[in-house]
C-alpha cells in the first residue's frame, strides 16, 4: 500500500529530525524572535536568533507541529549557525524553489539535510508545513534589517 511518493515524503532522516530535533531550546541571548503559526492546523514555532553584525551567531527554536514542519526547522537551524545574513536569505529562497519543484535546487548541496524534504513538493497541502521555519527566518531577517541597509 505504501506508495513511492509516500516513502519519499517520510524518509528516515525526516523522522529522525522530528524525533530528535536539533537546536530545540530557548535561546537566552536572542536578538530577534519570530512567532510563526499555521492557524489552520495548529503548528507553531518561535524562532530565536542571536544576530551579531552581518551574521547569525546562534539559531534556536521552540514549538510543536507535524514531522515535516519540525524536521524542516531542525535542519534549517543546523545550517544557520554562523551563517552570514545574505547567505541565510539565499538559503530560504533556494529551499522555497525546491518546494516549488525546482530539480536543480533539490540537488544543491548548500541545502544540506533539507534536501530530504524534496518529496514534500509532491504534496501541495504540506508545503506550508515545510516552509513554516523559513517563513519565520525571512521575517526575522526583515525585522533585523529594518532601519538599516544591508
Amino acid at each position: 500500500m505504501d506508495t513511492p511518493q509516500l516513502s519519499s515524503l517520510y524518509q528516515q532522516l525526516i523522522l529522525e529530525h522530528y524525533r530528535n530535533p536539533r537546536n530545540k531550546a530557548e535561546l537566552k541571548e536572542k536578538t530577534v524572535e519570530i512567532h510563526m503559526a499555521n492557524p489552520v492546523c495548529g503548528d507553531e514555532i518561535r524562532l530565536q536568533l542571536r544576530i551579531e553584525g552581518d551574521h547569525i551567531a546562534e539559531a534556536k527554536f521552540v514549538g510543536q507541529g507535524c514531522s515535516i514542519s519540525q524536521a524542516a526547522i531542525s535542519m534549517m537551524t543546523t545550517l544557520l549557525q554562523g551563517r552570514k545574513l545574505d547567505e541565510a536569505d539565499a538559503l530560504a529562497k533556494r529551499f522555497t524553489e525546491m518546494m516549488h519543484g525546482d530539480e536543480d535546487a533539490s540537488k544543491d548541496k548548500a541545502l544540506g539535510d533539507l534536501r530530504a524534504l524534496k518529496g514534500v513538493s509532491k504534496f501541495p497541502v504540506r508545503i506550508k508545513c515545510a516552509l513554516l521555519g523559513f517563513d519565520a527566518l525571512q521575517e526575522a531577517l526583515k525585522k533585523d534589517g529594518a532601519g538599516e541597509t544591508h
Binding site: 506508495t3 515524503l9 517520510y10 492546523c41 495548529g42 514531522s67 515535516i68
Partner: peptide, 30 residues
Amino acid sequence: GDAHPHDISTILDSDGIAVRAGHHCAQLVM
C-alpha cells in the same frame, strides 16, 4: 503514537481516505 495528526491525514489520504487533522476549531478542547 508520536505521529502528528497531519502526518496521519497525509498517509490516509494517499490511501483515498479523507479525515480531518487539526484543532477542529475547538482549541479549548485541545
